[in-house]
Design a protein around this nucleic acid. Structure first.
Lengths: 333, 333
DNA sequence: TTGTACGCGTTATCAT
DNA sequence: ATGATAACGCGTACAA
């Protein structure tokens, strides 16, 4: 690893001239410029980014701390973040805690130690609140995605889960369904509770009483929801519509229903949430109606919010809330 | 962002003492230590990682440059890389070029500018050779995964695609199939060619002649392979076995076969490659027989190779080759 | 056009 | 136990 001093020495000039050549600045005679370039090439010289960032007090880097990189749910979000960041000439670095909160914390600290100009963190787990409060306490430009933090001055990108769930439930009601159930996600996540609340509110507003089987507690995986639906069917329960808290468990519901010979959507209408479906699914199932979460746009907005915070030190934290959109496919009328 | 000097000044000590407290080193009186800690807490002080890395000449960071982060094929590889890196106390940073080679190059340069102790790059596209040569030319510790580079001193983790394809084809032959076809991946990838060669060699060794429809050129997506298979069936061609260059297109083949009412594996045996199947697929299709690519282990080996290179400057580049394993499920006997 | 000198924030050496 | 000083690699006033 050659340094700027070594290059300067070999080219018989001062480091200043080498620096000017490096940054394409004027004030270097053509002969010197050429000789410096030659020496650089000869040694495969690359300037040290750490030293440069240290003196410039600018890294042109945004650190993204994800819950888990290995989840196709995040593809659109990651794409939105990366495209937008790079459109503004920022380097986008991703890392994840593999669902471990201590690891996420470690990476937040890592990024916050002057290695980035700002941090974007994703998380909606209830346990994340501690992490977020620690981020908010640091003097770091930061945006939270999906992680709400009441009473804290911190930039946030949120989805209106309550309203989305309300919309889905209302649609089922307006289609004439009355025996509607809701299958929840993992209750460790705030979003799950918000979606549950949206369902309950819609049922209440339309005067549809909730029975003991109206709310089924599952998680965000296909299997659990599938088993729950099988059990329901085995017990002779006959819901005519089902609002599921996410797409993956919704496929589990579809699977159980199809196994039992139910006709979709006539015997059972289904609406999911997120629209994070791989295209390949279309091959098999009827197209799943769902509430689309605009993850790409949310990632875009997250980067823009962060860059705005970087450009305007001291401006107060902002919150942008997105609405989910009802996407009608085959699983409901 | 408070600095160590500000902390020292406010605590009425030298920077040396603050540094010692920071690194839990002896040589500080209890009173001073406590006062310094108080001042640190008061200012939410975090040491600057850039300055520290600059003087220590050590970042404890590994940069991973992926082809594309948004592809579930890489989940196991990413997991193997991250788990292994963190087991050695390294920070693992991921980035991707979103299939754009210039962006990948940008991130390699970024990481190589002193920001990491080593780089791991993935890529098997033929165009990647230029990228890899440029990496090899840099004085950076680096490991290539899936990207072979002949005649270059660079650490590599490879899969024996030829042998894997040979094994798959041989299995089909030994099960009595004779009218065997191969559906290739995108021919821009080296791996596709290697797998094709393995197929051809096996057919040749067993004296099975190749016909005009023995090799079907497709890509790594479900749809193209599906269309090709539909065409084949429509034309009245009746292969009794099919070795597909990857799992995703293999599902496309299965789809076309099932649409045509073929019985799997009696009418048509199918073997894929990679074993990157999401579990959810099991719901629908018969379990796909495939050549499992040990991506987690390859990621683990990649990090270990890199750490070894870091620890032993000057040791010559190594290559580790992994073998694919035949996984028998429902789509072949 | 060219070079000197200082600063970025930290750690390490060597006195005291 | 404590602190002054040099060093890491680079950018930039400022002076020449």
């Amino acid at each position: 690893m050659a340094t700027i001093s070594e290059i300067a020495k070999e080219a018989n000039v001062s480091r200043t001239l080498v620096s000017r050549v490096l940054n394409n600045k004027p004030g270097v005679s053509p002969e010197n410029r050429q000789r410096i370039l030659d020496v650089m090439k000869k040694h495969n010289y690359v300037p040290n980014g750490l030293a440069r960032a240290l003196v410039l007090q600018k890294t042109m880097t945004i650190g993204v701390v994800m819950d888990d990189l290995c989840n196709d749910f995040f593809f659109d979000l990651i794409s939105g973040l990366q495209d937008t960041g790079e459109a503004h000439d920022y380097n986008m670095l991703f890392c994840s805690g593999r669902k471990d909160i201590a690891t996420r914390m470690k990476y937040v600290d890592y990024f916050a130690q002057g290695r980035t100009d700002g941090i974007i963190a994703y998380g909606s787990n209830r346990e994340d609140e501690e992490l977020f409060r620690s981020i908010a306490a640091k003097s770091v430009n930061c945006v939270l995605i999906e992680g709400s933090l009441d009473g804290c001055k911190i930039n946030q990108i949120l989805l209106d889960n309550f309203h989305g769930a309300y919309t889905a439930t209302e649609h089922l009601i307006k289609q004439g369904h009355r025996n509607i159930i809701h299958i929840t996600n993992d209750m460790n996540y705030d979003v799950s509770l918000e979606r549950l609340n949206g369902f309950v509110q819609a049922m209440h507003d339309y005067r549809i009483p909730l029975g003991p089987d109206s709310i089924i507690y599952a998680d965000c995986f296909e299997q659990t929801a599938c088993q729950q639906m099988r059990r329901l069917i085995a017990e002779g329960k006959k819901p005519d519509a089902c609002f599921v808290g996410a797409d993956k468990p919704a496929y589990g519901v579809l699977r159980a229903a199809m196994e039992a010979g139910l006709s979709i959507p006539n015997d059972l209408a289904v609406i999911g949430f997120d629209d994070d479906t791989p295209e390949s699914r279309d091959i098999v199932f009827p197209g799943l109606s769902t509430m689309r979460q605009p993850l790409y746009e949310m990632g875009k907005a997250g980067v823009e919010l962060l860059l705005d915070a970087i450009a305007n030190p001291g401006r107060e934290a902002q919150t942008r809330t997105f609405e989910a959109e009802l996407i009608l496919r085959d699983t409901c009328r």
